[in-house]
């Protein structure tokens, strides 16, 4: 049993400045697996700078890891042969944030559908290709006669984003990596796009990695959630458990700050207030220590392991729970696998 996609202890470090002295750790020792046997929707939640987009780019092979390895079906993603790369490009699809930038404005939108059809030889004839395109559009709730032959600027952001979902579907992938797919789409269309993505998962058994800053949509679509902060996992596990009863101070702060569309559930009720500050002793300890309202001495010394605060439902990387059984960070994939098989 090999995973389709796997990150094993992957770090990504960006060096900027003339001498490369300014170092940003975008992702720090991350392990994650997407398994073919158990399709799930995993939401990666984090603010800007949490490394969530870097995580997506590493899995898509857009970036090489600084250390650790990204695998596609057990093979190093940076060393695939031509054939393997082609299979990879078919099995792993991406949906990005900006539904305009994904199109070439000089071509009709048909282009984004015909290119994968011809590149991967999905159709035997023109009529066959047309039928495939229409099926894909219908599956995401679009009327083909309103879409085909149009230019991108003639369609709304929501329509454009759904065409991208349709294209992803056309290839019958095993995995879809969706990086903020609804953040540039109007509220009234978000639900429709999320529904299309959810249907792909449900009907075709596609695993989805839903990368977002928005906990409300992550809660809605994700069976499991991984909360990232400055490149490290803060909390991970079953969505309902984490959102209803967060254990890590960062997750609590995050959930308390979410403006839920419900006037009776006020935000900012928790007494936890983030602190401003620089990290004493650099980044050796917990990444959140500098802002954590409940920080302790030991938080500055070494990063906490993942504590299994609720048995098999969730892990939290915080010394507050140090009486719970600890799990090494490299074991996160196994843990998430048993979370998803339990639900």
């Amino acid at each position: 049993m090999t995973a389709i996609l796997e990150l094993r202890n992957v770090s990504k470090i960006y060096k900027t400045g003339f001498w490369g002295h300014h170092v940003t750790v975008a992702l720090d020792g991350m392990s994650l697996e997407i398994d073919e046997a158990r399709p799930t929707i995993t939401a990666i939640v984090g603010e800007s700078g949490s490394g969530k987009t870097t995580l997506g780019s590493l899995l898509l092979g857009f970036l090489p890891p600084t250390s650790g390895t990204a695998f596609y079906r057990g093979k190093d993603l940076t060393k695939l042969s031509r054939g393997e790369r082609k299979a990879f490009r078919r099995e792993v699809q991406a949906i990005f944030q900006d539904p305009f930038a994904a199109y070439n404005p000089f071509y009709t939108v048909d282009h984004v559908l015909t290119v994968p059809i011809s590149r991967f030889k999905l159709a035997r004839s023109k009529a066959d290709a047309r039928r495939l395109m229409e099926e894909a559009l219908l599956a995401v709730g679009l009327r083909p006669e309103e879409i085909l032959g149009r230019f991108p600027h003639q369609l709304s952001g929501g329509q454009r984003q759904r065409i991208i979902v349709a294209r992803a579907m056309l290839l019958k992938p095993k995995v879809i990596i969706a990086d903020e797919p609804v953040s540039m789409v109007d509220a009234s269309l978000r639900a429709t796009i999320l529904e299309s993505i959810y249907k792909l998962h449900n009907d075709l058994g596609i695993s989805v990695l839903y990368i977002t800053h928005d906990l409300t949509t992550a809660y809605h679509i994700g069976a499991q959630i991984v909360v990232l902060y400055r490149g490290s996992v803060m909390e991970a596990g079953d969505t309902e458990t984490i959102v209803q009863d967060p254990q890590h101070p960062y997750t609590r702060l995050l959930i308390d700050s979410v403006p839920w569309p419900d006037p009776d559930r006020r935000w900012g009720q928790s007494e936890l207030k983030p602190r401003d500050g620089d990290v004493p002793g650099g980044d050796r300890g917990c990444k959140f220590a500098a802002r954590c309202p409940l920080v302790m001495e030991q938080c500055y010394d070494a990063p906490p392991p993942l504590y299994q605060t609720d048995g098999t439902k969730r892990v939290a990387a915080c010394y507050l729970w140090n009486q719970a059984p600890a799990l090494g960070r490299e074991r996160l994939p196994d843990f998430l696998a048993q979370v998803s098989s339990a639900t």
Binding site: S156, A191, P261
Partner: peptide, 23 residues
């Protein structure tokens, strides 16, 4: 009505109700 029912709320996971059509 449609706008409010399209919003994700706590306790109703996995229920998606978009507004059909486009502006």
């Amino acid at each position: 009505q449609l706008l409010i029912s399209s919003l994700p709320v706590l306790g109703k996971r996995g229920v998606f109700r978009g507004i059909p059509g486009v502006p």
